[in-house]
Every structure is written in C-alpha cells, then in structure tokens.
Amino acid sequence: NIFRAAGDLSHLISILILLNTIQKSRSIAGISLKTQILYVLVFLTRYLDLTYRYVSIYNTLMKLFFISSSIYIVYLMIYKFKNTETEQIDTFPIEYLIGGSFILSLIFNYKFQFGEILWSFSLWLESVAILPQLFMLQRTGEARTLTTHYIFALGAYRTLYIPNWIFRWISEGRVDYLAIFTGIVQTIIYSDFFYIYYHRVLKGFKFELP
C-alpha cells in the first residue's frame, strides 16, 4: 500500500541523504555516532532473519542495503572522518537504551524464541535509537540543514508505517501490536523535532532550537 511504500522510500532516502552529506562535506560534524551504532544493532537484530526467512526479493534487497549501509556509515565515522569534537558532545548513555530494550524484549514478544526476542529487541531499540542524535542537537542548539532532512526522513518512515498498519488492519485483519506500539513511541519521540522542522527548516530558516 501507498503508506508502506512511502515509508520505505523515506527510509531509503534518509540513508542516502546521510551518506551524501558525509561524502560531500567530508565531515561527520553534528552526527551522533552513538545513534548510528544503535541503528547497526537494530538492523542486524531485525534483518538477520533474511538468512532463514524469505519474504520477497524486495524485502531481501532492502534488508541487505540497510545492514550494509549502516555498517559503512559507522566505518566512515570511526575511521575515515573521525571527529573528536563531535564525539565529545555525543554523551548519551546508550547502555540504558540497549539494556532497557533487551528487558522489554524478554517481556514483550510473540514467542519466547531467539529470533522473536531479537525481533522485539530491534523494535524497542529502534524506537529510542534517535535519542543520542536529538540530545546532541539540543546541546549544540543548531544543525546543518541536511542533517535535519536526514532526521526528518528517518522519522517519517516509522510515522508513515502507522497509517500502513491501520490500512492492513482493515484490509487484511493483520495487527502487529509490538510494531504499532513501538512505532507510536518512536513517533512521539520525534514529535518535538517534527514541529521545529516544520516551523523553521521548511520555511527556510536555520534549524535552531528555541
């Protein structure tokens, strides 16, 4: 359906914006390494099911793209364009996010099986993975416009999945409670950012926190 397609496209675009921003400016200033590491974890724990579950060629290619691009971005950030200044303000304690997601995945899952717990873990972790990045924005008080486009596209992906879930619930009777709940949590975390993005960036102002 259209929401799912738009969501996936937005997800894809967000990664391309980020890669393009890093490659062109040859800098990772303002980008949280911790958030990027969390995304590697999210993609690895959710998408490694492609080794034992086949959905479609589209699904497989997308999974491979997200796993490889997220690892490549972390590689660029650590080895190629290392930025100690940015690292110094990237101080969000992600061990709590990882630990909390792990505990929640043990409590909430569809089956108490390794693959299902990993799937649930990835949903919880994804819902909070942007926090180090938002925290960094808050500390610096402003961001490059391209960085805000990246964060917007990434947030739009999960937000667009919400009407997709409603659509699938009506048309197929399919309900994924875990994905829906964590998707809503994620969207709430983004809501403040969306608001500022809409009021400043889209109207041609610099991204500055009030």
Binding site: N59, Y110, W119, G173, R174, V175, D176
Partner: peptide, 10 residues
C-alpha cells in the same frame, strides 16, 4: 484478527 508473526515489513 491474526497476530503478525510472519514479519514481512522492514
């Protein structure tokens, strides 16, 4: 309603 165990989304 059926529970979504097939995980066909990204």
């Amino acid at each position: 309603t059926k529970q979504a165990l097939e995980h066909d989304e990204l």
